[in-house]
Write a protein that binds this DNA or RNA. Structure first.
Lengths: 160, 160
DNA sequence: ATAACTGCAAAGGCTTTGCATGGAT
DNA sequence: ATCCATGCAAAGCCTTTGCAGTTAT
């Protein structure tokens, strides 16, 4: 079914020819609306939970499929962060993020894009450069508090 | 067995108290040696293949466990790149990478560390900053060639 | 002697996919 | 009418883990 793309979350999919006509289904509309409403850079599953409040019969697979399509059409961003769980951003514009290494929370990083940084590589790499991604890591307020109290051996949260 | 850490490759593990005495087993030695020998930032599985040439009976689980320990003791780096497959770097020093979005190949990015960049966030975020990661994306020579020839609809490789 | 480690296999978690059905254009 | 999209469930992939036996110190 997939031409030759990687399985799992592998490295990256082929540009995967999108269908000729992309239809606007109720599911797709709601997924997009809910994602744009959330500032929390949700995972597919978190978004699924949110969407389910409006479309109780939607399936997780549909959410995944739509997130893929929406990101391929540039309406949203699939975040490739350090964590292995994929997260999505309703804001399609280039910006950086900061990620809590303890709970996985992701926020926008208030810093201007490094527009020239890719130039530094031009003569120096054999790659054709496409872009770059800058991600800060840290502890969110909540985890940093927990870390300070139960500080014995530096315990950290399991997840969010 | 795991205290409270996330499952899968989740967000990040707790500092996971390492054992009191870390033994140097043959497996660990070979894994470290082979990794340092490879400049290709291999995945656990790729390294497993390499190590197996010297220790045919080693198990993949052992490779994973050792990579975890070695990275926690700072002898190697676990790369948190955009791809969802984890890769490892025998070079424990801070440096950036460039990743081929088509095949997942990773090379070092020949660019100096941005030592001051984290300062820009100090007043501006609620996070306690730990570090940052800069990753360039692009096409490696091999994929860029393939992309140019079969350029009809921009096909790209499936994996490495 | 004993805590740490290994091999093996099974479990786990996130993501993708096959298929029959439903729906947008 | 056509072909894209959905729901459901099963499969897939990478990674982690339980356990019993082994080994470094």
């Amino acid at each position: 079914m997939k031409r030759n793309g990687p399985p799992h979350g592998g490295e990256k999919q082929s540009p995967e020819a999108l269908p000729c006509h992309i239809r606007m289904t109720r599911q797709r509309t709601v997924i997009l609306e809910e994602l744009k409403k959330m500032s929390s850079h949700p995972s597919a599953d978190e978004l699924y939970m949110a969407v389910r409040r409006r479309l109780p019969r939607i399936s997780l697979g549909t959410v995944y499929r739509n997130l893929e399509i929406l990101s391929e059409t540039g309406q949203i961003q699939k975040l490739e962060t350090g964590g292995s769980i994929k997260r999505f951003d309703g804001n399609p514009h280039k910006h950086y993020h900061i990620r809590c290494v303890a709970c996985g929370r992701i926020d926008d990083a208030p810093i201007a894009p490094l527009n020239q940084i890719e130039d530094e590589l031009y003569g120096a790499t054999v790659y054709t450069i496409i872009g770059h991604r800058l991600e800060f890591t840290g502890l969110c307020p909540s985890c940093s508090k927990k870390n300070a109290s139960g500080a014995a051996s530096g315990h950290v949260q399991g997840r969010l």
